[in-house]
Design a protein around this nucleic acid. Structure first.
Lengths: 157, 157
DNA sequence: TATTGTTATACTCTATAACTATA
DNA sequence: TATAGTTATAGAGTATAACAATA
């Protein structure tokens, strides 16, 4: 007869559970490392999106990052109070703002890259360079296979 | 000179981001699959813990699963209303209850095992059996290396 | 005095709708 | 009529402290 009991310990041998467990742990750790800079994950995503393409409207940021436009207002408000972005007049659309990075934000960018580097080193500390490469490829295939948008985190929306 | 810009797209090549992205996606999917049965992740964890060792006290469940004792009250309340557990008198401690699975809960257990099987098949659909085995081993090593408790999800607490 | 379970409260977060000004 | 941004509000969820009964 088969064992019909799935215990808590057996979850540790299931890929979906391990991914969820590790993902939650890393997300919490990431948030903690970002907190001292005064940046939360949503603000982090906005700053990175602007570093890539500055002067986007709130609507463009909302669509790209999956953050609702209502929530985006608060994110930009906070970043503006922190003097990390400015709401400039949009060249093509008087309804919209061109959300623009300040010099202070550009100075801050290197510090934003540190947590993810540190996390990657820490979490893969027990792996060889080859194993890291294998893991990266497998995770990228899973992400693509699940239809997830590259670089867009489901929990931002 | 080095490229000082880390864009949103570059996150898709970072192991911590991919783990967090996949983990969040799978956790949401898992919750959705469980919802029609009327069970949320915390209730799921309690039912599995009781399937492994029935008659535990709320305190024992709290300690094992990382759920606060205050929150555990509501979880057990709901399960009791659903006639999935009973609060029986504890044989050794009159302060505590022996939380016990009902026959209805035991009938429900197989349905609780389905979502995680389905998720595992779905998420690893593009992988060979060998690749699945490699991925599983790597994830287990990451989880152990990070000091995570096997089978215990950080977000339950 | 510490433990088990419970309750109440305050706080955060989120989702929704409704509003303005522009297009 | 639709879009960009804003505001208000209600609901869910969470964290904390305080409480009664028992050890």
């Amino acid at each position: 007869m088969t064992d019909t009991t799935l215990g808590i310990a057996e979850l540790a041998a299931r890929i979906p559970f391990l991914l969820s467990q590790l993902g939650a742990y890393l997300a919490d750790d990431f948030e903690r490392r970002l907190a001292p800079i005064g940046v939360d994950p949503r603000a982090y995503a906005v700053l990175l999106a602007l570093a890539e393409c500055d002067g986007q409207s709130q609507r463009e940021l909302s669509t790209q990052l999956g953050i609702h436009r209502n929530a985006m207002v608060t994110v930009i408000d906070t970043l503006e109070h922190q003097r990390l972005v400015q709401r400039l007049t949009h060249p093509q659309n008087r309804r919209a703002f061109a959300v623009t990075l300040t010099d202070k934000a550009r100075d801050l960018l290197p510090a934003l890259y540190e947590p993810i580097d540190a996390l990657e080193d820490e979490i893969t500390a027990g792996l060889s360079a080859e194993e890291r490469a294998v893991l990266l490829k497998l995770l990228q295939r899973l992400s693509a296979g699940a239809g997830l948008i590259p670089g867009v985190h489901p929990r931002l929306g």
